[in-house]
Simulated scan of single mutants.
Amino acid sequence: MVSLTLPGERDALLSPTAETAGKIHVQIRGLSKRYPGQTQDALKEVDLQVKRGEIFGIIGRSGAGKSTLIRCLNRLENPTRGQVVIDGIDLGTLSDRQLVDWRRGTGMIFQHFNLLSAKTVRENIELPMKVAGVPAAERRRKVDELLALVGLEQRQHAWPAQLS
Rank of each mutant, 00 (worst) to 15 (best):
Gln154Arg: 14
Gly30Arg: 10
Glu54Pro: 00
Asp144Ala: 13
Arg155Ser: 08
Gly37Trp: 06
Leu6His: 11
Ser62Val: 10
Leu94Thr: 02
Lys44Tyr: 12
Gly57Phe: 05
Thr93Gln: 15
Leu13Pro: 03
Gln49Trp: 03
Arg122Leu: 06
Ile89Leu: 14
Met129Gly: 02
Ile55Pro: 01
Thr80Met: 06
Ala158Lys: 14
Val143Trp: 10
Glu153Tyr: 08
Tyr35Trp: 12
Ala42Asn: 01
Glu19Val: 12
Ile28Val: 15
Asp96His: 14
Glu138Lys: 15
Gln111Leu: 04
Gln40Arg: 15
Val134Asn: 04
His25Gly: 09
Asp47Trp: 04
Ala12Trp: 03
Ile125Leu: 15
Val100Ala: 14
Ile125Ser: 00
Gly30Ala: 10
Ala21Gly: 08
Pro79Thr: 04
Asp47Val: 01
Ala64Ile: 02
Val100Ile: 11
Gly30Tyr: 01
His157Phe: 07
Ala137Thr: 04
Ile125Phe: 11
Asn114Tyr: 11
Phe56Tyr: 15
Gln27Tyr: 10
Val26Ser: 00
Ala64Asp: 06
Arg34Gln: 03
Ser164Leu: 11
Glu77Met: 10
Thr93Leu: 15
Arg75Gln: 09
Arg103Cys: 01
Glu54Phe: 06
Arg103Thr: 01
Ile86Ser: 02
Ala136Met: 09
Gly57Pro: 02
Val150Cys: 09
Lys33Phe: 04
Leu152Lys: 06
Pro79Asn: 11
Glu45His: 13
Val85Cys: 04
Leu115Ala: 09
Thr39Lys: 13
Lys119Leu: 15
Asn74Thr: 12
Ala21Leu: 14
Thr93Asn: 13
Phe56Arg: 10
Gln98Lys: 14
Thr5Ile: 04
Ala18Gly: 13
Thr20Tyr: 06
Thr106Val: 15
Arg155Thr: 06
Gly82Ile: 03
Leu149Tyr: 11
Arg29Ile: 06
Pro135Trp: 06
Gln38Thr: 08
Pro128Lys: 09
Leu147Ala: 09
Asp101Pro: 01
Lys119Ser: 11
Gln49Pro: 07
Val100Asn: 12
Gln98Met: 05
Asn114Asp: 09
Glu138Val: 12
His157Trp: 10
Arg155Gln: 12
Ile89Lys: 15
Ser32Leu: 02
Gly8Met: 06
Val134Asp: 02
Asp144Lys: 09
Leu146Asp: 05
Ala42Tyr: 00
Asp87Met: 07
Leu6Asp: 09
Arg34Ile: 05
Asp47Phe: 05
Leu73Arg: 00
Leu69Trp: 07
Gly60Ala: 08
Arg97Glu: 13
Leu69Val: 02
Asp11Met: 13
Ala161Asn: 11
